[in-house]
Simulated assay, not measured.
Amino acid sequence: MKNGKISVLVVDDSALIRRLLTDLINGQKDMQVVATAPDPLVARELIKRHNPDVLTLDVEMPRMDGLDFLERLMRLRPMPVLMVSSLTDKGSEVTLRALELGAIDYISKPKVDIVSGMTAYQDLIAEKIRTCAAAKVSAKTQVRQAQEAEHRARAVASSSHQVSYRSTEKMVFVGASTGGTEAIKAFLIDLPADMPAILITQHMPENFTRTFAERLDRDCLLRVKEASHNERLLPGHVYIAPGNLHLEVSRSGANYMTRLLDTALVNRHRPSVDVLFLSAARVAGANAVGVILTGMGRDGAEGLLKMKQAGAYTLAQDEASCVVFGMPKEAIALGAAQEVLPLADLPARVIERLGQRINRV
């Protein structure tokens, strides 16, 4: 920080966007734009000169693509990056790739012709910059990723022979926010194909969740899809809460079903982790395992506590492996988590606990 303020470098090829972002960021008392750059090559020199706390980065720019620059940056000089892009179907794929490469968060570009919403946008980008400044960032290397995958595979293999997963009663419920896209992938990627149904709420816009589910489906043994309303929950399937809709579990006779709700925001979010976890406590009880992962805020903490009180087994990601230790920290403070583990150890522990669950209809 410089002068007690979060220092920000804005990188965008549009002079108008650079000026607008500068004005919005400098309007906050705890942050300031130390420089702006029209492309990554200029940004590279400005990073050396100013050593900013946070970088805002556009995707489509001259001389070097934003993703190419991000990949090099996170390998050679890792720092908190906030992607600024248009939230379109095309942009969602690109933005998810940016998160995969190490960006902390993302936000849509400000719409310069809509003045009425600019105050809300200013508050949102300021919140995301604060989150980025507080986040943990480390170099993304192929060696480290391979080591993590090998560790997860060994951990899962050590537990998977102990249990049989096929069940229409047992379920896993997962909640995450900032840093959650990669944490969820790490959690799911080595789970076996015959796991019980897994329901996930990740804070994400509505035009991102389908793309997110499709990317996970390509990488995982499990079948991953964006949840639809009133569908039966099946073993071997993962259901992602759609953006802008709450996801709940409900019961219809002997079957567990999804339920999507277009109701009020909870903890400023829709979908909300608390909404999912509270439904798990009501409907699934001791047949559930709850997992809360990296994220800013406290969404999911109360719900995880209710799950624990209803007989579910509850776990939280530990601080060292979180990008942002907000949601897990709040859950731990409430006594909602029965275990706190590194991300790499969570899949095997969930498998082990599923083998000990007792079906209660």
Rank of each mutant, 00 (worst) to 15 (best):
V275I: 15
I240E: 02
H237T: 15
A241Q: 04
P235L: 09
P242F: 06
V238D: 07
P242K: 09
C220S: 01
V238Y: 12
K225L: 12
L260K: 02
G300H: 11
M307L: 14
L233S: 09
H269K: 07
V289R: 14
A254I: 12
D262Y: 04
A227Q: 02
L260Y: 00
R270N: 06
A288P: 08
M296T: 13
E302Y: 09
A264F: 03
G253K: 12
L216I: 00
L234D: 08
A286V: 01
L265K: 15
G303V: 01
A286M: 07
P271R: 13
L265D: 06
M307Q: 07
G236H: 13
S272A: 13
L261A: 08
S279L: 06
R223I: 11
M296P: 07
H269Q: 13
D219G: 02
R259I: 01
A227E: 09
H269G: 00
R268N: 14
F277R: 06
R251L: 06
V273Q: 06
F212H: 04
R282W: 02
R232D: 01
T294D: 07
H269C: 09
I240G: 01
T294Q: 05
R270Q: 08
R259M: 04
I240D: 10
N287T: 14
A281D: 05
E226D: 00
F277Q: 01
Y256P: 01
G243N: 00
S228I: 09
N230V: 07
H229K: 00
T263A: 12
Q309T: 07
H246L: 13
N287D: 13
E302S: 14
G297H: 10
Q309H: 07
S252G: 02
R218N: 13
V283K: 07
V273S: 04
Y256C: 02
G243K: 05
A286Q: 14
D262N: 15
G295T: 08
R218W: 05
N244V: 01
G285Y: 03
F212R: 10
S250D: 13
L293D: 03
L245N: 13
L278N: 14
L221W: 02
F277G: 02
R282A: 10
A310M: 06
L276N: 01
V273R: 06
L247F: 00
S279N: 03
V266L: 03
V291C: 15
A227D: 07
I240M: 14
A213Y: 03
T211W: 05
R259Q: 10
E214H: 11
S279Y: 00
S228T: 10
A301M: 10
M257H: 12
T211E: 09
L305R: 13
D217Q: 05
V291N: 10
V238I: 04
R232G: 01
V249L: 09
L216K: 11
L276C: 05
R218E: 11
K306G: 00
N267F: 03
V283E: 11
R232K: 15
A241P: 05
L293K: 12
M296E: 02
L247R: 00
G236C: 09
P242N: 09
K308M: 08
A284W: 04
A264Q: 12
A213M: 12
T258C: 05
L216A: 03
R232T: 15
P242M: 06
R232F: 03
L260G: 02
K306T: 00
S252F: 08
V273I: 15
G297Y: 13
